[in-house]
Amino acid sequence: MPDERTDLPSAGIDTTTPSVARAYDAALGGKDNYEVDRQLLAQLNAAVPEVNEIAVSNRKFLIRAVEFLARKAGIDQFLDCGSGLPTAENTHQVAQRENRDSRVVYVDNDPVVLAHGRALLEDNDKTYLVGADIFDPPAVLQNDTVRRHLDFERPLGLLQVATMHHHDADKGLAPAEVMRQYIEALPSGSYVVFSHFFDPEDEAHSPIAHRVQAILNASISRGYFRTRAQIEEMLVGLELLDPGLVVNDDWYPTGPRTTPRPAAGNCIVAAVGRKP
Rank of each mutant, 00 (worst) to 15 (best):
residue 4 E to K: 05
residue 5 R to G: 06
residue 9 P to H: 11
residue 9 P to F: 13
residue 11 A to Y: 08
residue 15 T to R: 15
residue 15 T to L: 14
residue 16 T to D: 03
residue 16 T to R: 07
residue 19 S to Y: 02
residue 20 V to G: 02
residue 21 A to I: 01
residue 21 A to C: 03
residue 22 R to E: 07
residue 24 Y to P: 09
residue 25 D to H: 02
residue 29 G to F: 12
residue 32 D to N: 12
residue 32 D to C: 03
residue 33 N to T: 08
residue 33 N to E: 11
residue 36 V to R: 05
residue 42 A to L: 11
residue 43 Q to H: 09
residue 44 L to S: 10
residue 48 V to L: 12
residue 48 V to N: 06
residue 48 V to K: 01
residue 48 V to C: 12
residue 54 I to S: 08
residue 55 A to M: 12
residue 55 A to N: 12
residue 56 V to R: 08
residue 58 N to Y: 11
residue 59 R to N: 07
residue 61 F to M: 00
residue 62 L to F: 07
residue 63 I to V: 15
residue 66 V to D: 06
residue 66 V to I: 11
residue 72 K to M: 05
residue 72 K to G: 04
residue 75 I to S: 00
residue 81 C to V: 15
residue 83 S to T: 15
residue 84 G to W: 04
residue 85 L to S: 14
residue 87 T to S: 14
residue 90 N to W: 05
residue 92 H to N: 00
residue 92 H to M: 01
residue 94 V to R: 01
residue 95 A to I: 01
residue 101 D to F: 13
residue 108 D to F: 06
residue 108 D to T: 07
residue 112 V to Q: 07
residue 113 V to R: 04
residue 114 L to R: 09
residue 115 A to S: 15
residue 115 A to L: 11
residue 118 R to W: 05
residue 119 A to N: 13
residue 125 D to S: 10
residue 126 K to M: 09
residue 128 Y to H: 10
residue 134 I to L: 11
residue 135 F to G: 03
residue 135 F to A: 13
residue 137 P to Y: 13
residue 137 P to G: 12
residue 138 P to C: 08
residue 139 A to C: 11
residue 141 L to E: 03
residue 148 R to P: 10
residue 150 L to R: 00
residue 152 F to K: 08
residue 153 E to K: 15
residue 153 E to R: 15
residue 155 P to S: 01
residue 156 L to V: 04
residue 159 L to C: 09
residue 159 L to Q: 08
residue 162 A to S: 07
residue 163 T to F: 08
residue 163 T to S: 11
residue 163 T to I: 15
residue 163 T to E: 13
residue 167 H to I: 03
residue 171 K to W: 05
residue 173 L to F: 09
residue 174 A to D: 05
residue 177 E to Q: 14
residue 179 M to G: 08
residue 180 R to W: 08
residue 182 Y to G: 04
residue 183 I to A: 12
residue 185 A to T: 07
residue 185 A to E: 07
residue 185 A to C: 06
residue 187 P to F: 15
residue 195 S to G: 02
residue 197 F to T: 08
residue 201 E to P: 01
residue 203 E to C: 00
residue 205 H to R: 13
residue 206 S to G: 04
residue 212 V to H: 00
residue 213 Q to T: 04
residue 217 N to L: 15
residue 217 N to D: 15
residue 218 A to C: 06
residue 220 I to T: 14
residue 221 S to K: 05
residue 222 R to I: 12
residue 222 R to S: 15
residue 223 G to W: 14
residue 225 F to V: 02
residue 226 R to N: 04
residue 226 R to P: 01
residue 227 T to Q: 06
residue 227 T to L: 13
residue 230 Q to P: 01
residue 231 I to R: 13
residue 232 E to W: 03
residue 232 E to A: 08
residue 234 M to P: 01
residue 238 L to N: 11
residue 238 L to D: 07
residue 240 L to D: 04
residue 248 N to P: 00
residue 248 N to Q: 14
residue 254 T to N: 11
residue 254 T to I: 13
residue 255 G to K: 08
residue 257 R to M: 04
residue 261 R to T: 07
residue 263 A to D: 10
residue 265 G to W: 03
residue 266 N to V: 00
residue 268 I to L: 00
residue 269 V to L: 02
residue 270 A to D: 05
residue 271 A to N: 04
residue 272 V to F: 10
residue 273 G to P: 06
residue 274 R to L: 13
residue 274 R to K: 15
residue 275 K to R: 14
residue 275 K to P: 11
residue 275 K to V: 12
